[in-house]
């Protein structure tokens, strides 16, 4: 989509690597328990239910969704940890499951939950990983890039959740990957560490790394993503650039109508640019695509009448609104 912005010519004629997309996903499905083990009482629970998307070179693509939406199930298929039940995945032009060897040296993976032996130190863990990684960076450099230098000789079991996430990130970055998969990279981090991680991720993106990130933090997707897909119940409910996804959803104005006033006392709603409204008791909620005009009209009216609008809440469309609306819409569907 917007790969052209940073990467003039992008996958064009000059590049040796002519893949238009680094990742291509079509009709992807993943079921659990279909093999009939007693692990899952529900037979054939389908976590990913037919999704399509692609990620261009140098792009940061976010998979956004609540817990259980299918984010991890999807990203594990991209990482080649499991074979899809149906559909096709291509990473760097290869099937990540059957052609694991070809893509492994070119990708970096951070799982949702780090898998480290608890009795090793970060240094020992990275040393082990470096021995298994093509073109590994020096260990000290990897430690300092995620701010773990001070904790490098402490056993992993004594690290905090956030420190473990950062160790995991250091592992993922060790081979200077072309494609990076980050499964909820900031879950469990405090605000400061989260912002530091964002900065690191942004730097990586700016230097040309293609990144797929899953998150349930809307803010994170809004901050980082070039494009995103909102997953819900294993399907893509909305996709595109953040502004596109947000733009398809209206802004809101909410307030309490004072006693003695009725909805009909307001100026004609259409003239304010309001496209819909709901009332619950005295609470009024207006939807508009022209927030400034609607709010100005409403406030001038209130001033003329000498009314104070209690509980006034003027809110432009945000990813959060869009997200909630999509979730609500799908549940009603």
């Amino acid at each position: 989509m917007n790969i052209g912005e940073k990467d003039i010519g992008g996958p064009g004629p000059s590049g040796a690597d002519t893949d238009a997309n680094v990742i291509d996903v079509t009709g992807l499905r993943r079921s659990y328990g279909a093999t009939g083990r007693r692990a899952h009482a529900r037979k054939g629970f389908e976590a990913v239910r037919g999704i399509d998307f692609s990620v261009g070179r140098g792009e940061l693509f976010a998979l956004l969704g609540t817990n259980g939406a299918g984010k991890t199930s999807t990203v594990e298929l991209l990482e080649g940890l499991a074979a899809p039940t149906a559909g096709k995945v291509r990473v760097l032009g290869h099937d990540p499951y059957t052609e694991r060897r070809k893509i492994r040296p070119r990708i970096g993976v951070m799982l949702q939950e780090g898998g480290f032996p608890s009795e090793l130190t970060p240094t020992e863990t990275l040393r082990m990983w470096a021995g298994c990684t093509t073109g590994a960076r020096p260990i000290d450099e990897a430690l300092s890039s995620v701010g773990l230098t001070r904790r490098k000789d402490v056993r992993v079991k004594q690290l905090s959740g956030g420190e473990r996430r950062r160790l995991d990130l250091a592992l993922a970055l060790l081979g200077r990957p072309e494609v990076l998969f980050l499964d909820e990279p900031t879950t469990g981090l405090d605000t400061e560490a989260r912002h530091e991680t964002w900065e690191l991720v942004r730097d990586l993106r700016d230097s040309g790394t293609t990144i797929v990130l899953t998150t349930h933090y809307l803010e994170e997707a809004e901050e980082l993503a070039d494009r995103l897909a909102i997953l819900h119940n294993g399907q893509i409910a909305a996709a595109g650039q953040v502004t596109d996804v947000v733009a398809t959803h209206p802004s809101h104005i909410a307030f309490d109508l004072p006693n003695g006033y009725h909805l009909g006392d307001l100026p004609p709603l259409e003239s304010l640019g309001v496209i819909g409204h709901e009332t619950t008791g005295r609470r009024v909620r207006l939807r508009t695509d022209e927030l400034q005009r609607a709010a100005t009209g409403l406030l001038i009216w209130a001033q003329d009448k000498g009314i104070e609008l209690h509980g006034l809440d003027v809110r432009s469309a945000s990813l959060e609104e869009a997200f909630l609306e999509i979730a609500k819409g799908l549940e009603n569907a």
Binding site: D17, E178, L200, L204, T209
Partner: peptide
């Protein structure tokens, strides 16, 4: 958190690293 060193171009990668 400088990343100039983290990401490498494909060319750099190819020359530096035998698998």
């Amino acid at each position: 958190m400088s990343t100039n060193t983290i990401a490498a171009t494909t060319a750099e990668r190819a020359e530096a690293n035998a698998e």
